Amino acid sequence: MSDLSVLGWTPDRVGQLPPDSAPARVFRVDRGRLSVLTAGGEARVHPASALYDEAGSGAPAVGDWVALRGEQAVAVLPRRSAFVRTVAGRTSAAQVVAANLDVVLVVDALAGEARLRRVERYLAVAWSSGATPVVVLTKADLCDDVPAAVALVAEDALGVDVLAVSSVTGEGLDAVRALLGPGRTGAMVGPSGVGKTSLASALAGRVLGATQEIRDDGRGRHTTTARELHLLPGGGLLIDTPGMRELALYDDEGGVDAAYADVAQLAAECRFRDCGHRGEPGCAVAAAIDDGRLDPSRFTAWRKLQAEAHRQLLRVDARARRPRPGHRRELARGGEDGVLFRLR
């Protein structure tokens, strides 16, 4: 593969490469090893230990461009976009799910009742990624009224295209392919069992992972076990991700306000800038709920995600303020000019 533009490489990245290194794109991350695509084909390389940081965001991720020297990745090139979540549990560490994306496909299934709050949470993180979010509703062949189901999701997914697809009949697949032109990268994110692997296989024209039978409730079972980037027949690139049991926001309230643009706009129209939306006079949010323009559950979800993002921001800030290992020894010694270093 001599033409790296097929993988999404652009000439302006050349200046980001360290001296005496060659570019490669990460298509899979395993323990201590990276599988990469280079101008010469596939390779397995070791990431340099310097690439890992306490925050977790510096570690190579699927979709990253890395600089190679021999069989070692010595640098991660600056990301244009990244789908990032907080590591599961009470932590402030970040996990980059996929990097350098043009589009984030938020996948859910049309089988069963619509899970609007879950879609909104994924959209909040997708908006924060810097890529374009699109909702893809799979298993259209199992839905009795597809237009109505799409309209219900579209009512909440403001500013986002909502596509219905079926990996069985092929319905809607061309619309998804159109998002992934030559050199463009998309990532599929969503919970287990919504049909991500089947959709990826349908787009690739080959089986990409084992699929299991559909349960009585219309949901599939978890099949993908690792994030991986795939080349599609039309020249696009698609990252399939395992289902996420937990999707916690990572220090960005902007993505929440983008996903809930209607609620954020109402909040901006309140009489008082510090309105708590708990019955204060002139509260535009309360008025919209009272006259039926705003679903109370959507407002509650917005407040919950805003609070979650704020708490995570405080955790990240607290971690940044912690002294580095060995920093207290520097405090005791003082600088070369005798001035004592100060913790910030």
Rank of each mutant, 00 (worst) to 15 (best):
V207M: 10
R206G: 04
G209C: 04
P147R: 13
G209Y: 00
L180S: 00
V165I: 05
D144G: 11
A175C: 03
A226E: 10
S166C: 00
S166H: 03
M188A: 09
G170C: 09
S201Q: 03
D145L: 10
A178M: 01
A151L: 02
L179E: 03
V194Q: 02
A164H: 01
D216I: 03
R206D: 06
T223H: 05
A149V: 06
A202S: 13
T225M: 09
Q212A: 13
G218H: 06
G193R: 05
G186N: 04
V162R: 13
G170V: 07
A164S: 09
A154L: 04
A178G: 05
R177Q: 13
S166N: 02
E155V: 01
R227M: 05
A154S: 11
R177C: 08
H222G: 15
A202Q: 09
L199N: 13
A151C: 09
G170T: 05
L238P: 01
G159S: 06
R221L: 12
R184G: 08
D156K: 08
L238M: 07
V146D: 13
P242D: 09
K196P: 03
V189L: 02
D156Y: 12
G209W: 02
Q212L: 15
T169V: 11
V207I: 13
C143Q: 12
R177K: 07
T211A: 15
V146K: 13
A202G: 07
S192M: 09
V207C: 06
L238D: 06
A164L: 00
D161A: 12
L173C: 00
G205P: 06
I239D: 06
G195P: 10
L229E: 03
E171T: 15
V146Q: 10
A187Y: 03
A157G: 08
S198A: 14
L199W: 11
V150S: 07
A226H: 12
T169R: 04
D145N: 12
D217P: 02
A175H: 04
L238A: 08
L231E: 11
V189D: 01
P242W: 14
T211W: 00
L152I: 01
G209N: 00
L179P: 07
P233H: 15
G234I: 12
V160S: 02
L237K: 00
A151T: 11
P182T: 09
A151Q: 15
L237N: 11
V153S: 03
